[in-house]
């Protein structure tokens, strides 16, 4: 991991990877969305609205995975003082916040025809809303620290503390049995969704994940370029 501590070495990989991830992500997304909208049957209970599954589940996954990645970057920064960890944290936050917001929005739109309400203060919805607010707090804190020229340690601590919300989101459907359905897909236990409805989901999951990675790389590149620019301006002013 420390082999990529050198920004020049990191950029050598990040530059081509950005385009590849974006291209692959968009192709997978297109295939998954067309599959989900055209080639899958309606659900026997939910009807056509089940198609929201293909965009809602990946949004939820990326909202949570984004914060898990921020927490990993925070550990890397606090324990090993990895020079790119703070850059990664700052780059991951806008993408994670966007997907957390999309998860809330698509969930709300899905909730209206299936539950009869746009919003309910249920455990899963509320903990996801808290995750979105945590992202906003992290973005504000990390950018304020960057402006001040700090190392981003406060944001890293905030990133670690905020990770406590992830198991709460995950287990909320078991701890508080309210409106949101229980887990339908698990790594160990398979899926309770019919295969003819489920198959486009891995395509959109992978597609959104690749797009998320491409966005994060773009924002990391922007952050590194800004650091380079500031260093050059400081050097020019000193000469």
């Amino acid at each position: 991991m420390h082999g990529y501590a050198n920004p020049a070495r990191f950029l050598k990989i990040a530059r081509p990877a950005t385009g590849w991830l974006l291209g692959i992500g968009l192709v997978l997304l297109l295939a998954g969305v067309i599959g989900g909208l055209v080639f899958t049957p309606p659900d026997y209970l939910q009807g056509e609205t089940v198609r929201i599954l293909y965009i809602h589940v990946p949004s939820a996954w990326l909202g949570m995975a984004g914060w898990a990645s921020i927490a990993a970057a925070s550990i890397s920064q606090i324990v090993w003082r990895h020079p790119l960890a703070a850059v990664a944290g700052r780059a991951l936050a806008p993408a994670g916040a966007t997907f957390a917001a999309l998860c809330l929005a698509t969930g709300s739109i899905w909730g209206r025809p299936t539950w009869g309400t746009w919003w309910e203060w249920d455990g899963r919805l509320t903990s996801m809303l808290i995750l979105f607010f945590l992202y906003l707090g992290y973005i504000a804190l990390a950018s304020a620290e960057r402006e001040r020229g700090g190392e981003g340690r406060m944001a890293a601590i905030f990133g670690l503390v905020g990770a406590i919300n992830l198991p709460i989101i995950h287990y909320s459907v078991l701890w508080w049995r309210t409106l949101h359905q229980g887990q339908s897909i698990s790594v160990a236990g398979g899926s309770t969704i019919a295969p003819e409805i489920l198959w486009p989901l891995p395509l959109t999951m992978l597609g959104f994940t690749a797009v998320f990675a491409a966005v994060s790389l773009m924002l990391m590149r922007a952050d590194l370029a800004r650091t380079k620019l500031e260093a050059r301006l400081r050097r020019s002013a000193a000469e």
């Binding site: 929201i52 993408a95 999309l102 698509t106 739109i109």
Partner: peptide, 18 residues
């Protein structure tokens, strides 16, 4: 209508982020 609204929100959100 709900399906189209959800896909439009995600399309705009992802396009905006990109």
């Amino acid at each position: 209508s709900f399906v189209i609204a959800a896909y439009a929100v995600v399309g705009l959100g992802v396009a905006g982020l990109l």
